[in-house]
Each structure stands twice: as structure tokens, then as C-alpha cells.
């Protein structure tokens, strides 16, 4: 682990130049990279790049019905944001379950996404919110960006479609319609400081006993956090009665592929997804 160079670029331009030049270990909060590298689980590249000083890569702004969140925004900053609390409350709920105050102060949204843990706390609400990620690179002397849905960005545990020369620069979330209902559930015995055994996000609009624009996402039951399209379809536009709830739960059961690990067995994860989705839908009905 011989690091030849440490750098802390001030601009995105500078950071992308460094990335283009060769193997780099970028970090923002460092909360994942530091312990992983110290334990030898991750080999650091010869260049260690601190992203935190890049100007303009933080902040939360709303424009034309889209909330743009800079990748360097910390969990605490998300929780302090009025627009997140009021309009993207499901994301706020997930942040509240994220680790501890110390880690919320250091960990960034971009870092949590790029870490691509199947159990990543923010991924489930971001999927529910149809978030898109913005990736930047500088292939020919000019900054180029591409945007893609988060669901397409996540490939597997720790794996994303980010190319080595790219940086995740921002997350964009289309503002949900007024009255959007969002609920996040994380299974655990503690309020936070816990890796979730499973997590569930539910978002929808209430319409006269029916749910519309239904979005359901699960964490820790597949190689990535996933959307549950079949369960969503079972619910979309239907009167939310017991039969529909049963059908949605059954559909969800077919969409998950939980593994057994030290935190839970696959069997238990499956049971919890079904039980808790059911409970969340019942809660949504009485909401």
C-alpha cells in the first residue's frame, strides 16, 4: 500500500484530469475507504484523491421540478434540508436510520451510492424516488456528463457502471407530486448503527382508496437494491383491499433473491419482506 501521491483538487475539472491520468482511489467522507484499506480488504491505488474540496459538488437545489443533490452532500446536510424533509421525506427517513451522527456528518450521498452495498441505506428511497445519477468525465479536454437511472447504475455488491475515469457528480430526483406518500422500513433492533437485514421503501399517491404511481424497492434481498416492478403492477390503480395486498406481497416474493449470511438467513429475509411489505401497505391504506 504505497501511495505515491495525495491530492485534494478544488475543481471538478482538476479532479477529472487526475482520474483520466491513471489509477486513483477517490474518496469523499472516507468512512468506507479508510477502514477497508486499513484492514487490507481494499488495495489503495498509487494516487489517493480527496474529493471533498471540489467546489460546486455539494448543495441541494430545486429547479423545474427536479431536486439536484451534489454528490458531496452529507447525510446530515440531507436531513437539515427543508426540501428533503418535506418533499423527499422517504429519503429523510432513511438518513435517520443511517449509522450514527458521526457517520452522518462524514458520509456523503455520492459515497453511499458508489459503495453500492446491497444494503445501502439511501439506495432504497432513491430507487423509490426514481433518482438519476450524473456522471462526469473529461475524455478530450472537455467535461462530459451522462445521466442514468440509479437502477441502471447499480450492478452488484460494490459494482456500478461508473467507469474508472468518471466521477459521480450529482443525484437528480424529480419532485414527486404533492401528496406523495413515502415510507421507509429498516429491520433492526436499533434505530440506527445497524446494517439492515432487509429494508423496504414504498412510495405512492393516494387516489380515492387506490394507490397510483406505486414504487416499491427492497434492500439486502438481491445483489443490489432493487425495484419490485411486479408488486408495483399488482397495486397500481387498484383499490387497496386485502386481496390486492396479498397479490402484491406474493408478487414481491417472486422478485427477491435473498441470500443467507451472518446477519440473517434467506428464509428469514423473505419472511420479513412479505410481513413488512404487508404491514406497510396496511399502514398506507389507513394513512
Amino acid at each position: 500500500m504505497t501511495i505515491e501521491r495525495y491530492c485534494a483538487p478544488r475543481t471538478l475539472d482538476e479532479a477529472l484530469e487526475i482520474l483520466r491520468a491513471g489509477p486513483v482511489s477517490p474518496f469523499a467522507g472516507g468512512t468506507d475507504l479508510m477502514p477497508q484499506s486499513q484492514a487490507g480488504r481494499v488495495r489503495l491505488a498509487p494516487v489517493l484523491m480527496n474529493l471533498r474540496r471540489i467546489e460546486g459538488m455539494g448543495g441541494i437545489a430545486e429547479n423545474d421540478g427536479v431536486v439536484r443533490i451534489g454528490a458531496l452532500t452529507t447525510m446530515t446536510q440531507l436531513m437539515d434540508s427543508a426540501v428533503v424533509r418535506e418533499r423527499l421525506n422517504i429519503l429523510w427517513q432513511a438518513c435517520d436510520h443511517f449509522a450514527s451522527d458521526q457517520l452522518r456528518n462524514a458520509g456523503t450521498l455520492g459515497g453511499n451510492i458508489c459503495n453500492a452495498s446491497p444494503a445501502g441505506d439511501t439506495l432504497v428511497p432513491l430507487l423509490v424516488l426514481d433518482a438519476r445519477v450524473e456522471l462526469a468525465q473529461k475524455p478530450n479536454g472537455r467535461i462530459e456528463t451522462r445521466k442514468l437511472p440509479l437502477a441502471e447504475f447499480l450492478l452488484g455488491p460494490g459494482r456500478t457502471t461508473r467507469a474508472p475515469q468518471e466521477l459521480l457528480s450529482a443525484i437528480e430526483i424529480p419532485l414527486p407530486a404533492e401528496g406523495f406518500y413515502g415510507a421507509f422500513f429498516k429491520l433492526g433492533t436499533r434505530p440506527a448503527l445497524d446494517i439492515s437485514a432487509i429494508s423496504i421503501g414504498l412510495g405512492a399517491l393516494h387516489d380515492d382508496g387506490c394507490l397510483r404511481s406505486v414504487r416499491i424497492a427492497f434492500g439486502a434481498v438481491a445483489p443490489t437494491a432493487i425495484r419490485a416492478a411486479r408488486a408495483e403492477a399488482e397495486l397500481e390503480g387498484r383499490l387497496l383491499d386485502q386481496d390486492v395486498i396479498d397479490a402484491a406481497v406474493q408478487a414481491a416474493d417472486t422478485e427477491i433473491h435473498p441470500i443467507s449470511d451472518l446477519r440473517a438467513s434467506g428464509w428469514y429475509r423473505r419472511e420479513m419482506v412479505c410481513n413488512m411489505l404487508r404491514r406497510m401497505l396496511e399502514d398506507a391504506r389507513s394513512h
Binding site: 433492533t189 436499533r190 446494517i195
Partner: peptide, 26 residues
């Protein structure tokens, strides 16, 4: 909450992430 998981002689959770001490809210 606490469980040092020893499986076939391997210690599976040698860290506070998965060896769960009670925390203040609990």
C-alpha cells in the same frame, strides 16, 4: 443482541458492526 458467531472454528463477526453491543437508545 450479543453473539460471537463461531462457525466451524471461524469467528464470523470480529467487529462491532456485527457483534452488537447494546446502544444508548435501546
Amino acid at each position: 443482541t450479543e453473539n460471537l458467531m463461531v462457525e466451524d472454528g471461524w469467528v464470523r463477526n470480529p467487529n462491532f458492526r456485527d457483534y452488537k453491543l447494546v446502544t444508548a437508545p435501546e
